[in-house]
Amino acid sequence: MDEQSTREQICTIGRNLWLQRLVTANDGNVSVRLDETRVLCTPTGVSKGAMTPEMLTLVDLDGTRLDDKPVRPSSEVLMHLEVYRQDPNVGAVVHAHPMFATMWAVCGEGFEARMLPETIVSMAEVPLAPYATPSTPGVPESVRPFVRDHRACLLENHGALTWGTDVTSAYLLMERLEFTAELNWRLRQAGAGNNLPDGEVNKLIQLFS
């Protein structure tokens, strides 16, 4: 898509995050890699449900501003840029604070997602990135080890991060992550739940990888 269409799509995704209660207030951020050097990023201090296309800011892969808009890029943009640097196939990143995924993160736990075929294919394991102070270089350092082998991770005492080939896939992974986090949480409280056997897990991965 051209840049204007991408801006509009990011705003649609931001509103979906807000409507689905995956973010509250001004939380969360979304970015899309336009090309090898430019990244569109949501602004800081703006509800994801109230963004307009002209609010989005442009930065390079080092985080340098490429426009003179009055709004600043999200303070978490360094985390997004690290994902792009680690995997050139990533085209978009979504950061949110969904309730159940964040509960796992606050408990200091990642989780496996081997109960349903859909989660096995998209995120058979959701690792926990160790806590780092938001907006500091420690955050990108904490997610770096998980980028190439996963499509989502939890941020300890912070929230969740997903990434995909485009902004729609990254957003849908956030929806999937929150559903899976809630399923795992409720099953743990009930003392129930069965993972699919390893043979079936491997079969699914081979079929849909």
Rank of each mutant, 00 (worst) to 15 (best):
V39R: 14
E54C: 05
D2Q: 12
N157I: 00
S122R: 14
L128I: 01
E8Q: 15
L58A: 09
P70S: 01
T52P: 11
N89Y: 00
F146A: 03
S31C: 03
L116P: 14
R176K: 15
L56E: 10
N26T: 07
D2A: 05
L66A: 06
F208E: 01
L78M: 12
I13D: 12
T57V: 09
W104C: 02
T52F: 03
T165E: 10
M115K: 13
M99L: 07
P134I: 00
Q9T: 08
Q9V: 05
N89I: 00
D198G: 12
A113R: 15
E178S: 04
G45L: 06
D35Q: 13
V32K: 15
A124D: 10
A25H: 12
M99H: 13
P73I: 02
R7W: 03
R65F: 00
C107H: 13
R21Q: 07
V71G: 08
Q4G: 02
M1V: 05
Y84L: 01
V143G: 13
V126P: 09
M123S: 09
H80E: 03
T52N: 13
C107Y: 09
M51S: 08
C107E: 08
G159I: 01
I10A: 07
T168P: 12
V71M: 11
L34H: 13
A170Y: 09
Q86P: 10
V77M: 14
R33M: 00
F179S: 10
V32H: 13
A132W: 03
C11D: 13
V59P: 01
V90E: 04
S74G: 11
V23F: 04
N16A: 04
V39I: 09
D60F: 07
P43S: 05
R114P: 07
Y171R: 15
L22N: 11
M51L: 08
G14N: 12
L56N: 14
A129E: 04
A96R: 15
M1L: 04
P88W: 06
S47T: 12
Q86H: 11
H97I: 00
A113H: 14
P117I: 01
A160N: 13
N16Y: 03
T119M: 06
N89F: 00
V83N: 14
L161K: 15
C11M: 14
M51R: 15
N29L: 00
V143I: 14
R114V: 00
A25F: 05
E82T: 10
V46G: 06
Y131E: 03
